[in-house]
Design a protein around this nucleic acid. Sequence first.
DNA 1: CTGAAAGCGCTTACAG
DNA 2: CTGAAAGCGCTTACAG
Lengths: 336, 336
Amino acid sequence: VTTIKDVAALAGVSPATASRVLSGNPATSPESRDRVAAAVAHLDFKPNAQARALRSAHTQTIGLLVSDIRNPFFADLAHAVEQAALEAGYVTLLGNANEQTSQQDLYLDAMISQRVDGIIVAPQGDGSGSIKSLIARKIPTIFVDRVISGLDVPSVTTDSDTGIRQAVAHLVAMGHTRIGYIAGPQNVSTGHDRLNAYVRAMKSAGLIVEPDLMFYGDFQADSGSAGVHAFLSLADPPTAILAADSLMAIGALAMLTRQGVQLGSRTALVAFDDIEWFALLKPALSVISHSAEDMGATAVQLLKQVIDGESPSSVQLPSELIVRASSSERLRARRK
Amino acid sequence: VTTIKDVAALAGVSPATASRVLSGNPATSPESRDRVAAAVAHLDFKPNAQARALRSAHTQTIGLLVSDIRNPFFADLAHAVEQAALEAGYVTLLGNANEQTSQQDLYLDAMISQRVDGIIVAPQGDGSGSIKSLIARKIPTIFVDRVISGLDVPSVTTDSDTGIRQAVAHLVAMGHTRIGYIAGPQNVSTGHDRLNAYVRAMKSAGLIVEPDLMFYGDFQADSGSAGVHAFLSLADPPTAILAADSLMAIGALAMLTRQGVQLGSRTALVAFDDIEWFALLKPALSVISHSAEDMGATAVQLLKQVIDGESPSSVQLPSELIVRASSSERLRARRK
DNA sequence: CTGAAAGCGCTTACAG
DNA sequence: CTGAAAGCGCTTACAG
């Protein structure tokens, strides 16, 4: 393997000078710069990031840990973070917790060991394990999408409340009173907050919140199917369903289809998270939309501030109901 | 920061012994093991991967570079690689080329600098740039999904031919003779191979391949829309459309919907790549299916073999037509 | 502007 | 089974 010594030898300078040229230190002569540049090109030299990181404080690398890369929202988020990080001169190491705290800890440990300059994480669990290590080591950290209560970490989250309030109000206006809710896991902040928002919205619409109309899912597709299955087996099923994320909405839709239930004037569906092709479904799916692009770009911005020693405030991004055909028909009474 | 010296001091052993315990070297006494383990736990010590990598030959880290993380096929592939790598004791660093050769080179350089033990890449471009460096350095490399011709790198690809032949034959059986094809970029092997497969399949069905019925897209959604737009402006538009990947199929569908064209007895659509929710569309979308899970698991397996000094053969995975409602009606003649 | 030297945090022959 | 020592490939005060 070629090292900086080889480059220095070929250029006829010391390794120190070669290093200065490589890192853009202005204390170099134009002649040295040319000779070193030529040697680097000739040898196709790539500096060893490990050795470099061992001496300097930073690696120009950040970690991004998402909870489920197959969830389109997180794929979009990953893309947005990567692009923003690249512009800021950082390479992103992406890890996927796969909704498991153990896997989250594994990746977090790997990122700590890699000495990333900072970490953006959609956290799982209660803040024990590697999340705790992260904070104890004062590694610059930003929470995205979700937070862990009690931890003083800057975050970028969505104000789910507004969108959910709009959705419930809209469904009520369409004549629905039995609005079923497929919730996310309650040990995840978004799961918990969105359920609370639903309960508040129902109450402020003057509706009774029945335990039977709340199904506890896990943000994955199968639990959306299970939720619909449970709802359909009720003596008096809900006429509208609100799913707390896109994957559960997909699962819900699959089960509705399988059971022969058509979306329309008797059954409405609204999903949290806007996915491009939701608009292509027949009927097109109403959604509560929030921007993965904004979330990713903002997270990188906050992380840069933390790396620079600042203490940025947390940011809440808006959510908004987009009404499409899946919920826009007035409820017609069911046949007896 | 705590180092192995702190651990050694607290445990009352030398750094050498602490290092041996940490790396599972059997030449350690049970007592040393206990004392070091206790010290590690007490100090929450995480070894510096950089320093470790600088001495030892491997980092237990692999790089995965996909061409577009927002393409569900690659998100599934990333998930599969990550899980298989984890089981083999590797952490995956995921990069996203975003269908740009410049960005591919950036990530590849970063991965080389990080001294990953191996790289799995869905390559762009002609094999110059950092792909060349990769090979010159003899860094264990596997191509997935795509290849670069002329490079002797083990690969895991899909046999697109079978699926496309089945799709064309099926459409012909349904009465279609004007079958439009929305192709991927021709400088990418999958784009090129699939177009060739279409041409061959058309010929063997005795159909004329008209240039007007081939649209050159770029594997992204917008180009699918553009393809449909072009087709619809023909004097005699195709009655069936085959799109070379899922994103272009989504774009195609969006444009068909916008133009008020219903899928059914007058217009059929088949997509390459099976995405979970394609089955939920109305009508459900016919697809040429291939498994991202198998591809990811196989790629990790091949990479392990290369890392171990073996020379595995390339693997071709099957593709298969799945007929759904979007193409299963017999063609009815258009009104004049 | 440049070079010699020390050192980042580990690991690994070597000797015992 | 253990420790002292050398060294991985860089960077960075230090002195000139």
